[in-house]
Structure formats: structure tokens, C-alpha cells
Design a protein around this nucleic acid. Structure first.
Lengths: 148, 148
DNA sequence: CTTTCTGCAAACGATTTGCAGCAGC
DNA sequence: GCTGCTGCAAATCGTTTGCAGAAAG
């Protein structure tokens, strides 16, 4: 399943706004992240596409982060995980397998999200917080590991 | 506010179960983490108590993690953050300030917890996960930074 | 006393960066 | 063509580890 060209257009636009170019390598990164459907590590990114240099991949991930196209999250191990930002991948949460370390996406129903958003805003307000985003992390065993 | 001696007793017990000793330095770490009321970085830990060596502090944090007394979470920057595990600090969530990077604790209302429980059940059902724990991360501006 | 800690200094590994040549616009 | 990107190799920095002396039980 390829990434929609509208996504590429939007990315190009964001990059242009920061005087950045949408190069072959950056396009490939967006493709890989968009296809994976879950946050992936740098080793996984490099494995998914030959021809990417590690240092340049890091540099480009950084640039894409700065223009709000990519988000970096911290996994259970030493590796950072990268995914398309919510504006491109949609709002979702994460399931972290404590056994194999994989991180999966989870989409919640609009109903639950609405209640969640409201309650979090309320709770945080008690401590003077202005909440801009919420992210839920569920830890446990993924289907594959729970079967063992 | 000092850490209750019952906590120290429980920690000593857990350590003893792994053939580990409850040394002065480990006790001091538990004190610091227990008093902070929020996850703190290694620099903050070392600043909070003179006489702690960095390498030993890391080693002891690792040991305390292994026996389930300390938990390590990833903050917005390069530093890991450490806190007492839920068994000692109670169930709570995190507020991450996008401006200053500080991480605060947030205790949720029963209402909010109920919604989280529902999301958890949903995840388990849809993707075959066995969820053991949930953690909510709210991003935004802390009271100090929102005032600016 | 024995085993586990501690401190020091050196090692590690993910990520970053300087520099010279290449590619987008 | 100018400017910004790429690849390479070296640097950075939080964290880990080896080893010899100190402390817990």
C-alpha cells in the first residue's frame, strides 16, 4: 500500500516553507514510515530500503521532525522509533510489547477519544497545565508473544 | 517530606530476594526519588545528593529497576528519567512540558481511569494484546511556562 | 571473612557533525 | 549556477563495564 500523493504534496509544502528540498531520500523515508503502520527504528528503516546512508537518514529524519512531518518516540530499548506525525498518520495510541519490544498502533473510537480528551484537559488544568496532545501507552504482550 | 520507613523495608526485602544489599547509596537514591514526586534525570539525582558517583548511581538505578523498585521512562530530551515504581509511588500519569521539558506526575480521577480501562479492553480484543499496564502521557505547557 | 559494592577510568553505541563533492530547483 | 544535500569518517555524549580496594552481612 503506497503513500497517497496528497501526503507527498503536503510534505513538500512543509519542507518548502523551511527552505528545504523534497529529495529522493526524504521521499523514500516518508514512504517507508507511511507504509509501516507502526513506529520503526533506524535499523528497520535502513533495512527497509537499501541505498540509505545512516547519517543522512538521521539527518533527514531530524529535518522531517522539525517541519512536523515525523515524530520520534522512545521505545523500550536504546533505539528511537519514528513515525509519521498525527497530521499525516491520524490520531492513535501505542501498544508496547514487553517481551519483543515491538510498538504497534492502536486507533480508538471517536467516542472514547472525546471523553479522554475532556477528562485529560480537566485533570491537567488542576495543575495549571495547558494540554496540547495526549498519547496513551499500553504495555503488555503482543499477539505473537502472548501465544508462547 | 521523608520517605516512609515501610518503603525502605519493602525495598530491602526486594533486594534481599535477589541477593542484593541495601547500601547507603541505594537508600539515598530511594530517598531522592521518593521525595521528588516526579521523574528526574541523572544530573538531577547527582545534584540532589553530593557523594554519589555517576557510574555507581547508574549501576544502582539499574539494580533497583531489576527488582521492581525503580522505573525508567524516556523524556523529551536525551536523558532518561527515573521514578519509584507504581507499587511504591502509586498509579499515576505524566505531564510533559513541551517548552521546558519537565515531567510532572498526574493522578487521574476514577472517571478517567475507567475510560482508560475501556481503551485497554478494546486493544486487547482487537489486536490480541494482553495488556498489563497503561500509562498516559499529556503534552503541553506547564503552569510556569504557560504563564509566559 | 566472603561476597557484593564502590570509584576510577576506559569502553560502548546510538546519534551528530565537519567537510568535500553531488543534486534539486 | 547557487544552495542545500549526501557520504564518509571522526566526534559527541548518555550510559555501561573492568578492575582493585572498601563495606555489608
Amino acid at each position: 500500500m503506497a503513500v497517497a500523493s496528497s501526503v507527498h504534496d503536503a510534505v513538500r509544502l512543509r519542507l518548502a516553507g523551511a527552505d528545504q528540498r523534497y529529495t529522493t531520500q526524504r521521499r523514500r523515508l516518508v514512504e517507508i514510515l507511511g507504509r509501516s503502520g507502526r513506529p520503526i527504528t533506524m535499523p528497520e528503516i535502513l533495512e527497509a530500503a537499501t541505498g540509505l546512508t545512516q547519517s543522512s537518514a538521521y539527518r533527514n529524519i531530524t529535518v522531517l521532525s522539525e517541519v512536523g512531518v515525523v515524530e520520534r518516540i522512545a521505545g523500550p530499548d536504546d533505539y528511537g522509533r519514528f513515525e509519521l506525525a498525527e497530521a499525516f498518520a491520524g490520531h492513535h495510541h501505542h501498544l508496547v510489547c514487553e517481551e519483543c519490544g515491538t510498538v504497534e498502533d492502536l486507533r480508538a473510537s471517536p467516542n472514547l477519544e472525546r471523553v479522554l480528551g475532556e477528562l485529560t484537559r480537566l485533570a491537567a488544568a488542576e495543575q495549571g497545565y495547558v494540554v496540547t496532545e495526549h498519547r496513551l501507552e499500553l504495555r503488555g504482550r503482543c499477539a505473537a508473544c502472548a501465544g508462547n
